[in-house]
């Protein structure tokens, strides 16, 4: 089997996209921590549940942004670069 540049390019793109998504680990852990804290807070103080929920969604959105950056990089590698 001879060496083909196109095959190597595709291989590199796929591996690169996969590696880029590793960053989603952090976002997942972050969202988990945010939600755990919010749920505990709601359990302790059910009256403030609405306020906590708002802030929880904000925090999740910020944490999720990191995963979205990873996704965008992966998409760029897959569909745009090369």
């Amino acid at each position: 089997m001879e060496f083909s540049v196109e095959a190597a390019t595709i291989l590199g793109k796929l591996i690169g996209a996969g590696l880029a998504m590793i960053g989603a680990i952090g976002a997942g852990a972050g969202i988990g921590i945010v939600t755990s804290g919010a749920v505990q807070a709601m359990g302790r103080n059910p009256d403030a549940a609405g306020n906590i929920q708002t802030n929880m969604i904000l925090g999740i959105a910020f944490a999720e942004a990191v995963a979205i950056y990873c996704l965008v990089v992966a998409l760029l590698i897959l569909f745009v670069v090369g």
Partner: peptide, 13 residues
């Protein structure tokens, strides 16, 4: 950047 890519990324994905 974060606003734009968050919405785009979620919906495109």
């Amino acid at each position: 950047l974060s606003f734009a890519f968050r919405l785009f990324g979620n919906l495109f994905a």
